[in-house]
Computed example of a mutant assay.
Amino acid sequence: MTARTIDRDTAKRKPAAKAKVGAIAKAKAVAPGVAARIGSTPKTKFRGDPDIFGRLVEDHDRHRALLAMIEETEGKSPNRQTLFKELVKELKAHAAAEEQALWSSVLRDPETTDFARHAIAEHKEIDDMLGDLAARDMASPGWLRRFAALKEEYLHHVGEEEQEQFVAAEAHLSATDVRYMRRVFNRRKKEEKAVAKVERKIKLKP
Score class of each variant (00 low, 15 high):
Lys76Gly: 06
Met1His: 13
Gly33Pro: 04
Leu56Trp: 05
Asp109Asn: 11
Lys45Thr: 12
Ala3His: 02
Arg62Cys: 04
Arg37Met: 14
Pro110Trp: 01
Glu161Leu: 00
Phe185Trp: 09
Ala95Pro: 01
Ala134Gln: 08
Ala31Met: 06
Asp61Tyr: 05
Ala68Phe: 01
Ile6Thr: 13
Met69Lys: 05
Lys18Ile: 14
Glu122Lys: 14
Met181Phe: 14
Leu67Gly: 00
Ser140Gln: 15
Thr2Ile: 02
Leu107Trp: 10
Val30Asp: 00
Asp137Ser: 09
Leu155Cys: 08
Lys85Asp: 14
Arg145Pro: 00
Ser140Met: 15
Tyr154Trp: 14
Thr2Leu: 03
Thr5Trp: 11
Val57Phe: 07
Phe53Glu: 12
Lys197His: 10
Glu58Thr: 07
Leu133Tyr: 05
Arg80Thr: 04
Ala116Cys: 13
Phe166Ile: 03
Arg182Cys: 09
Lys28Val: 08
Glu98Phe: 02
Arg117Met: 15
Lys14His: 15
Lys203Ser: 09
Ala148Arg: 11
Val21Gly: 07
Asn79Gln: 15
Lys26Ala: 02
Glu153Pro: 01
Arg188Trp: 12
Val57Ile: 14
Val167Thr: 02
Leu83Gln: 05
Pro15His: 06
His172Asn: 13
Glu199Ser: 13
Ile70Gln: 00
Gln81Met: 09
Ile120Cys: 05
Ala36Leu: 08
Lys124Ala: 09
Glu170Tyr: 06
Ala27Phe: 08
Ser77Phe: 11
Ala121Thr: 07
Glu98Ile: 07
Ala19Gly: 09
Lys189Met: 11
Thr73Lys: 03
Ala134Asn: 08
Ala35Trp: 05
Ala27Cys: 12
Met181Lys: 14
Glu98His: 08
Glu72Arg: 05
Leu102Thr: 09
Phe147Ser: 01
Lys28Cys: 12
Met138Glu: 11
Thr41Val: 04
Glu74Tyr: 09
Asp137Ile: 10
Ala101Ser: 14
Val34Ile: 11
His94Gln: 10
His123Gln: 06
Arg8Ser: 12
Leu173His: 03
Leu83Trp: 03
Leu67Phe: 09
Phe166Asn: 00
Leu67Asn: 02
Thr73Ala: 04
Arg182Lys: 13
Arg182Pro: 07
Ala135Glu: 10
Leu102Arg: 11
Gly75Arg: 09
Lys193Leu: 08
Pro206Gln: 13
Ala93Asp: 02
Gly33Ser: 00
Pro15Tyr: 04
Asn186Arg: 09
Glu191Leu: 11
Phe46Gly: 04
Ala134Phe: 02
Ala23Cys: 05
Ile126Lys: 00
Leu133Asp: 00
Asp177Pro: 02
Asn186Ser: 07
His172Gln: 12
Ala116Pro: 10
Ala171Pro: 10
Glu74Arg: 11
Pro110Asp: 07
Leu66Gly: 02
Leu107Asn: 10
Arg117His: 15
His156Asn: 08
Val198Asn: 03
Arg179Asn: 13
His156Trp: 10
Lys190Arg: 06
Leu66Asn: 06
Ile24His: 03
Arg136Thr: 15
Thr5Val: 13
Lys26Thr: 05
Ala3Met: 10
Leu91Lys: 00
Leu91Ile: 00
Arg55His: 04
Leu130Val: 09
Tyr154Arg: 02
Asp61Lys: 04
Lys124Ser: 06
Arg136Leu: 15
Lys76Ala: 03
